[in-house]
Design a protein around this nucleic acid. Structure first.
Lengths: 223, 223, 223, 223
DNA sequence: CATGAATGAGGATTCATTCAT
DNA sequence: CATGAATGAATCCTCATTCAT
């Protein structure tokens, strides 16, 4: 008897969890493809194969869903990326793997950026959670990398600027190069390689090893 | 008599122009602060001090406004940036001035990014106009910079990746560092400096720790 | 338990049916009295004691209602008329009863013709349904009447012309004589008598004034 | 000088008349094809090649136009029909010519019935003008025909019923047979012939087929 | 728990009418 | 006279939310 009861309770709890997940998934799909504005409860519940009223058993309001949606995806993404980082030799390899994992995750769920950008409006808190988590992860990584001399010495502000340049790069490179060339199977690899190379070396002209005194750009002002 | 008539006609045309501009401005303000979803014709016209019906004398529909809004701001922004570039010595100075001008423009019109990101949904065409114009400008600049050897040789994919990294950096650095520290009057200067430094030199460790002079401008901060 | 459930379900279905009927009735009333143009959803739902939004649970759109309104009334009318025809001896008695039933139905629902005439514009399909059904009914009746020699031989075109003359007569006689003399309780009877008489005998002069018995029923008034 | 002035005045007056007529014509066209509901001032003035504001120089309001539109057309129609009646031998020939002229007029301006039927709603007065004029014309014709024994003796109510049967027949025969068979060039002729035949003789069975001489024109169909 | 009918507020759009030019 | 810009009321429709079943 008690087992049966537990069983039933489990079924109930499982069913509830299933419904909640179905609503999240449906919401992500609808918001990602049509935007928050068109993400009506009706559309979401329909997509989740539930009745409209059922929505309110799992979320207090439309706003409540929006507050929870991005954080849920963010956590999932962080989990995914983390799982791919193990064993990286240094900062640049870490970033290479991280970016690759990020792009992979995006490709699974193309609508991520629509959700991210719109969330900024409908739920600033949720958006802040996303960005501050990302920034915090980078901060940790950078601290360790600096401690281990994997980077050149960074001056004031450079760490913060670097952090957001990397977050930004991931976002834009995905949206504007990778998403636009999805048929090309190698695009991720190539983009990551170029990205890491620029990140490591910058794009300034190299001093000629043989002429250490020479300053590149010396005559540049003439242009 | 003809003068009076011309005068009057001018007034009419001027009034119309004023109204259109007021609607654009109001729309930018409302969309930027509340998002497209809440940018009702009522709110926009109220902000512009016009009657609701008047809106339809200047735009065919709400969608029509949305299609025109971002391009109008984009053009204005490009104009502003262009006006600040004259006399830059090389690529990095150009990017320094460009980014600074960009940040200035953003500060005038803080809601730009909300408009940009949301536009992607409500008017993909308008968003595409923005990004492709930005990419095109960078493409031209990069071509010239490469021709004049202001950059290290770039490999395949690096130019495209670099372009979007710069566009991305401008966006994220503004949104996450500059907008968040607006009380600090020097934040733009410092961010730009750090950004250009990373762009030029990367963040990889120097091969030869003992020879800091190897990299051009490594000590740029001294200026 | 199952009984209660069934009971409840019935109630729901019944409520829905009631609402739909209330909307039809309200629509008929509003359209009939104010015309389609002024038949706003607001007016109709108010008349039906329902909220505006409720309308859209029963009709897809205003147009959808308009498409259904006339056919619904047409079917009701046909049903009513049919119920009064049983036992008619011949064509003229059938038409007498039919016209009388028609006039009765009209008197219940005075706005019928406004609906009919306007429907032609807002829902040509619905109007066509009405007219073609009416024409078809007459066609059947005429076929039988001819087979049973209840009519003089009809030449080409006469059957079709006769059909529309009868449909037309019903409409105009109701609108211009009966509706205008509703206080007169016998108006229907008298109009029908005169109508049937003209239909049967025409109005041409009799060749032979001295032989009134020449035409069957020519002296019908004696009955 | 005076001549020139008169000339100018005439031009002005002519211009005004032209505008008024253009508005009437445009209104008839728009109302006839789209109905009163969609006959906005904007559409009408556009059709008339005039500015919206100009409308109010010729009509007090939209309603004012609607009040005048049908009467104007009615007068035009009566004029047309009257011009075709001259020389008719008796009542039936008169009706034959009248109906033919009516159908001709309709064919010129197909939208007449939409205007007529809708006018009933937007301007009952104007509709009443139409119907009472038509009834009055018939009344005069019938009085003379009866005086001249061109009809069989009519009982009570028969005259009024006959009047509206004829008005109704014209309307429905045009709308449902003639308008629907416009490609058939002879349709008018045939419909009129059948109509007059039914009107004259009715459709009741003949007592004695062997006595063709009994009814005037009884064998008319043989032609 | 789950349902979906009912609600009514909110928003895009149209249009008769006015009035300055 | 003629114009057409400006107005704001009116209307269809959508949708978050509630609640009886």
């Amino acid at each position: 008897m008690p087992r049966e009861k537990r069983q039933k309770k489990l079924n109930r709890a499982e069913k509830a969890d299933e419904n909640r997940k179905a609503l999240f998934k449906a919401a992500a799909h609808v918001v990602g493809n049509y935007g928050y504005a068109k993400a009506s409860i009706g559309r979401i519940t329909q997509e989740a194969n539930l009745a409209q009223g059922t929505f309110y058993l799992y979320f207090e309001s439309r706003q409540d869903l929006f507050d929870q949606l991005l954080p849920a995806i963010t956590d999932e993404m962080m989990e995914h990326i983390k799982s791919r980082l193990h064993g990286a030799a240094d900062f640049f390899e870490l970033e290479e793997r991280g970016a690759t994992a990020f792009f992979e995750f995006m490709t699974q769920d193309k609508c991520f950026f629509r959700i991210l950008y719109e969330t900024d409006l409908v739920s600033p808190k949720a958006a802040h959670y996303h960005y501050s988590l990302a920034a915090q992860k980078y901060s940790e990584v950078l601290r360790r990398a600096r401690a281990e001399k994997q980077l050149r010495p960074l001056e004031d502000y450079e760490e913060e600027v670097l952090t957001y340049m990397m977050i930004a790069a991931r976002a834009y490179l995905y949206q504007h190069i990778i998403a636009a060339n999805q048929t090309d199977g190698d695009v991720v690899k190539r983009v990551v390689k170029a990205y890491i190379n620029i990140l490591r070396n910058g794009v300034g002209p190299r001093v000629d090893a043989g002429e250490p005194g020479k300053r590149i750009n010396a005559g540049q002002g003439a242009s």
